[in-house]
Amino acid sequence: MRALALVVACAALLAASASAAEPPNAADLEAELVCPVCETTLDQSNAPVAQRMKLFIRERIAAGDSEREIKDALVAEFGPGVLATPRKSGFGLIAWILPLTALAAGAVTVAVLVRSWSRRRTLSSPEAPLDPELERRVDEELARFEG
């Protein structure tokens, strides 16, 4: 059992180091970066600056830069607006947290409102008493059915 765990851990480590050593993919990066002129992702743009940025990405990949290094270099030139999605750290984290917080707050509000409405409905519509004549007939029918 211990040997199996060791093998699994080694395999996971090897996989992690292999993926870390793998060069970034230009097409993936082009889908994650925005052309500052036309404001679409680079893979959707043929603007001259987008072409230049694509060339820059390929040059940096060939030079051995990581995805993070390439993105940092482009942010240093064009600002954080060049990233198609905000970073999951620092100030960019707010863009990820805020919608989730708003969603949670909305869910709590809806739950509170639904609960209060259903409670009010229960209180305002108590079970109506059965007509005595109708009750007598139901009892007779039940007695006949059981008898």
Binding site: T109, V112, L113, R115, S116, W117, R119, R120
Partner: peptide, 10 residues
């Protein structure tokens, strides 16, 4: 309580 929650939400 329910009325209060509704007012807050509004």
């Amino acid at each position: 309580m329910a009325r209060h929650a509704r007012l807050v939400a509004q």
